[in-house]
Nucleic acid binder design. Sequence first.
DNA 1: ATAATTTCCGTACGTTGTACCATGAAGATA
DNA 2: TATCTTCATGGTACAACGTACGGAAATTAT
Lengths: 256, 256
Amino acid sequence: MSGMSTEYTGAGDPRRAIELLWGVPGPPRRGPKPKLTVDDVVTAAIRLADADDLEAVTMRRVAEDLGVAPMSLYTYVPSHAELVDLMLDRAHGELADELPATGWRDAVTAVAEDLWQLYHRHPWLLQVTIGRPPLGPNTFAKYERELTALDGLGLGDLELDAVVSLLTGFVRGAARGSVDAARVVRRSGLTDGQWWELSAPVLAEIPAADPANYPRASRVGTSTGQAYGAADNPEHHFRFGLARILDGVEQLVSRG
Amino acid sequence: MSGMSTEYTGAGDPRRAIELLWGVPGPPRRGPKPKLTVDDVVTAAIRLADADDLEAVTMRRVAEDLGVAPMSLYTYVPSHAELVDLMLDRAHGELADELPATGWRDAVTAVAEDLWQLYHRHPWLLQVTIGRPPLGPNTFAKYERELTALDGLGLGDLELDAVVSLLTGFVRGAARGSVDAARVVRRSGLTDGQWWELSAPVLAEIPAADPANYPRASRVGTSTGQAYGAADNPEHHFRFGLARILDGVEQLVSRG
DNA sequence: ATAATTTCCGTACGTTGTACCATGAAGATA
DNA sequence: TATCTTCATGGTACAACGTACGGAAATTAT
């Protein structure tokens, strides 16, 4: 294989992936002492991703960070794809286990907030395409906690799953908007305001782009621009959307 | 520049990008007749992306498709990034302008359904990272239509923007789950069921992965597995989530 | 005719994941 | 202790990527 095609979780051999995720010891080895452990590799990879991007996690860079040759990594990890799986499960281990005991709305809010924070601490998590659900301990614990937050509301199993999916999907999307916006500012060196000051005059020269053709869009666009000093406000969108979803779920619950 | 770093929309020179998006004619040219148009390039790129992936849209492959050398494309498009911007705006041109006049719930539902369909027709749209909002005609029209669906409900401009963001972000996330799941099945050649049959026995050998440690997760997991014959059902998650969000928005509206 | 401009494209560079193979280190067996 | 077996290490190489650079050829303006 060559290049780095779109990688999704759960590519590669399931057996090997699961053994790595759960850290099964394996039979006693015979050859020379390994200089590293799988955890070392994952730690270095996460350090690189945190400092930059998922794109920064190349086998060559991870190897350099660890003081070994690129090909040596393949004794610890079958491929780049499995390394990403391991990074993902490890990062989710930072989520708490406890939940507030002050009602389901607080519990669900805590789940959403924790995830929102986690995605901002490790923005590269949002660059991982989810193929198969990663069958690691922390991914399991995350799902268990999310279900626990909705315990005792009388929801059926299928409804529980759908609500959790709605919630986590929403947080993921909102966080993505937030970190993508931050990334583009960092990478381009232009704030949203500066970028708009460059773009607006060009747009004004295009007859077809007359604001009269898009009356609502231009009105709301200028309103949000003035209110936030930016095109939009990810943090506000997160809180607003979460409130709407909680209201929607509450109706479902109260209807039985 | 080398390799293909994570590309986001709105990279590159804003002036040139906007001129391309709106198809401004430019001064009369002097040199030899161009063999192609910008539209030809975009069309070929979309054809490749539809047939496969965004990853399949390489300058070399697009050029081959058009019968020119790779470097010739750069006379039409400043870089790969701008090409993606153009693809994105063009694809959104497939969205209808009209809305059902039978109430805001129907209108918002139509917006969501149309987007859901569009993302399934062009799954690569979900692989584009949104940096700056693409300032093209069809992106404008999309936003205008979304706002129109919420007309006359008494929502403020900031609320309107937040609701639209919630709605489109939700559809995007749900569709992503759907197309990613389909892609992994196609690429791995394994259905969810087959993949699970491979994974489950391995997991059963891991003591720490005992279902008793994750009681809710394992119960709900088997329920959904039996109900859908798969890990989850994207279509159902979409309809379910949309209903919850509509209920949540309805509360906001009725509270004034 | 000449000059100015623009298209087209061959070549080349730096980047990626990783296949393949040789080298040598360390435990198992005699 | 000597030999065998197994495994970590890492050098080299390949195909694919975006695209910088610069020359050749074509077209229009003068």
